[in-house]
Design a binder for these strands. Sequence first.
DNA 1: AATCAGCTACCTCGAGGTGA
DNA 2: TCACCTCGAGGTAGCTGATT
Length: 305
Amino acid sequence: MDFRKVDLNLLVALDALLDERSVTRAAERLAMSQPALSNALHRLRGLFADPLFTRGQRGLIPTARALELALPIKGLLRGADELLQPQTFHPAATTTEFKIATTDYMFVTLLVPLIERLQSDGPGIAVTVRSLESPDIPDRLARGELDLAISIPEFSAPHLQSRWLYTDRYVGAMRRHHPLARIRELSIADLCGHPHTLVAPAGGRVSGPVDDALARLGTKRAIRASVPSFLALPYLLACTDLIAVCPERLSRTFGAELVVFEIPLNIPSFDVIAVWHARSHNDAAHRWLRQALAALSSETHKPTE
DNA sequence: AATCAGCTACCTCGAGGTGA
DNA sequence: TCACCTCGAGGTAGCTGATT
């Protein structure tokens, strides 16, 4: 079939002619002139190699071939209409996979609630989580190997789209029976007088914003354990007298074995953002995912500043 | 209802120019 | 060399008005 010869508007014209059985009325319905629709009928006759209609006393009489075409054409036009409607996404009726790169901390604060939500709202949707430490995340977003990255603004690039999700700040955490646990307001001396644990990426520097703030005050802390994952903190803190400074939102997931406290340091808060490539900016499924993450962020997080 | 003439608007295609 | 843009020629569709 040579589809170059097929004009969808011709099928619309045939549909109207079959309904109206009159060139004049069909032309009015299609907001065309009567000669133009007559011309369209001429082309339809060529396309289907059939007269399609013969003239009767009151309008047109369809041929057997025209009657045979009536139902298939209605179905075809309904399908074309659905195809041209704005794209929508129904999570409950969709089977798909979202590939998201993030850190273990943001996995706990955002993706665990997302996956929990999907159990009821999108049972056919799978989430595959990748490490954010891979160096080619922007390229993988561009190639479609990743749908989204959840990170801090410094990670974003000019050619990527981004959306703010929430702002977090640093707090301290220690076990309930820690020697400092009964002190209401810790001093710098209290903080530096006890050993710490720190989350640092493999191969990265073994210090963080806490150490930078302490250095500005002319002091420092003793780091006794450096671990590569925030997920290790609750286990480590529960069985040692180590202190950890971590994002407040993460600290809310700690159990009753740990206590969370204000730190006597002025450390800037930080933003968490979603990052994606322009190729998926208008995709309905991607839009739904970004909206869901933003909603989860605002539902469970109150900005502290 | 169908067809024709004359007109306009739009689209496709190929040629040619330009810049990285 | 390639991608992209502009321009003109030719084809097609739809219009009005007149006619069969």
